[in-house]
């Protein structure tokens, strides 16, 4: 058996340099790596010495360092503002001890289909900052689609503009602590009784993640009384497709997802009503 070793870089440059080594990958919280096949790797790079566990907000832009944990984000966001979509979604992810370990960077790097992070990040139009070969800032959607961006590059942080409007998160799962079968994120702003901004993301479908723009467009500029919700949901029927999921067959999951999307829309109506 080949020697397996740990690297403990003290700077981002040093960490990026280590990425050149064959079979050596960055270690965020480790929860993904431990469960996988360890014999794939020759070494792991601890990111702890890089000071990437920060979360800050400057001029309304939130920046989360790669090694900040889900727990850190929940604490930060809840303290900063009440109805934070990330606090809502991440507090439903995994379990308390795992949330103390799972890092934003590690989560973004793997983005499993049950990710509770991806929906909100897409809805927030977040960007991923990379250092190394592909240094730069990438919209999270692009990053998730193009896995090759990760090669020889290190995730430094995730950034998004703070969102203060209506937030809604639903995750379909068998039990509280479970891999979600799909999740729905909805963000909306209202202006004088009409929707001024709507962002609706479905994660877990065949497309893995999708903005439901038909619905977004069907709401923006309108007041709830002008909207025929079932007609609106009908518009996405063909584009929302699933494989079989943990909660059931592909067709069943689609039916449930459509019901839950409808409920999200109704919840936004109710919120607008209450805001008045």
């Amino acid at each position: 058996m080949e020697e397996f070793r740990w690297y403990y870089p003290n700077s981002i440059e040093e960490a990026v340099g280590l990425l050149e080594l064959q079979g050596v990958v960055p270690h965020g919280g480790g929860t993904g790596i431990i469960r996988g096949k360890l014999d794939r790797y020759k070494g792991l790079i601890s990111l702890e010495g890089l000071g990437l566990d920060y979360i800050k907000e400057v001029d309304g832009v939130v920046e989360i360092g790669a090694t900040a944990t889900y727990h850190d984000v929940i604490e930060f966001c809840s303290a900063l503002y009440g109805e934070c979509i990330l606090a809502k979604s991440l507090s439903r992810a995994a379990s308390t001890p795992l949330r103390n370990r799972i890092t934003i960077g590690g989560s973004v790097a793997y983005f499993p289909i049950w990710s509770d992070l991806m929906g909100p990040l897409i809805a927030l139009d977040a960007t991923v900052s990379l250092v190394g070969k592909n240094e730069g800032e990438y919209p999270v959607k692009e990053f998730a689609r193009n896995r090759s961006l990760k090669s020889h590059s290190l995730i430094k942080s995730v950034k998004f503009k703070r969102f203060n409007g209506f937030t809604y998160y639903h995750r379909a799962a068998r039990t509280h602590f479970d891999y979600g079968s799909f999740n729905i994120t909805m963000l909306a702003s209202f202006d004088n009784g009409v929707f001024s901004d709507v962002r609706l993301v479905l994660v877990g479908s065949k497309a893995k993640f999708q903005r439901l723009s038909e619905i977004e467009n069907g709401l923006i500029g309108r007041s709830p009384s002008d909207v025929d919700v079932s007609e609106l949901i009908g518009r996405i029927y063909d584009s929302v497709e699933f494989h079989n999921t943990r909660i059931g067959s592909a067709e069943y999951t689609r039916s449930v997802a459509l019901v839950e999307i409808e409920r999200a829309v109704h919840a936004s109506f109710k919120a607008m009503e209450e805001q008045k």
Binding site: R35, P97, N100
Partner: peptide, 8 residues
């Protein structure tokens, strides 16, 4: 609190 099985 962490799961020690999930920590190297």
């Amino acid at each position: 609190v962490v799961n020690s099985c999930m920590v190297f």
